[in-house]
Amino acid sequence: MKAFSYERAANPAAAAARAAQVPGSKFVAGGTNLLDLMKLEIETPVHLIDVNGLGLDKIVETPEGGLRIGALVRNTDLAAHERVRRDYGVLTRALVAGASGQLRNKATTAGNLLQRTRCPYFYDTAQPCNKRTPGAGCAALGVGAFSRQLGIIGTSDACIATHPSDMAVALRALDAVVETVTSVGATRRIPLEEFYRLPGDTPERETVLMEGEIITAVTLPPPVGGRHAYYKARDRASYAFALVSVALVRQADGAGRVALGGVAPMPWRAAEADAELPNGAHAVMARLLHGARPTEENAFKITLAERTLAGMLAED
């Protein structure tokens, strides 16, 4: 861990301004991912701006009947919230499928969205990684590399890492919107669909957030009804990242939404795939995973995604 300075921010706009003012600064909230990465010197901020005191830990109803979730709402509290459980069940299910009880007690809504990939080569600073060191190369694409957990779609020749969040997959299915304050004090509303960037040649740039910009809330549109399900296929029953996860919201008429985790650098959903839901899992995945470029080791994820969804539809 490199030495760093530290301050507590007074309000979101001040935090954003300060972050833009100090190059190499980072916000810290729960710290469940950032502190690990700092110990490994994968993240080397020179300055930490503690945002825990910003009062962004409330969940309130929006005038439209949706929910506005403060950026600092802990994963545990979000999962347990009565309205979330009643109207956005897919979100509660995704949250409790992630991490462990202790981590969920610390991890925040915004921090969860911004967590870094768990690609093992990203985590080993002795290995080349374009996400860590742009232009260094990608060890995960090397001959004989271990890529079983990694991405199959949306990836690039520079990076095949996945986004590890479960929560984000559910939020994607719910058409969540990220609210921010920029370094000049302006507010932005970014649909989650547009929040993450594909790696392309610049896998180090993971979101559309600008220098200093801080997430203040995530809003959910009014409930869409339907049956909510989240299935996370994994090698052990708890405390494991998804091989594939499926968020499903399904209406009585068979229409609905499907988002995937564990397959791409962002939660993976496509409107044209949602439209195939009445035609079954195969039709959905034919659209949703069209153009997938798996490695030999993770090609099974294509079958797994389809079978996971098929199982969920069969249970419904």
Binding site: P120, Y123, A139, V143, G144, A145, F146, Q149, R236, Y239
Partner: peptide, 25 residues
Amino acid sequence: LATDLGRGFFVNHDLASYEVAVHAD
């Protein structure tokens, strides 16, 4: 222990990625 056959090391070198059974298992 997943072996990188090109680089010659065990890739999953932490307790998050080397998956021992947990209580739920």
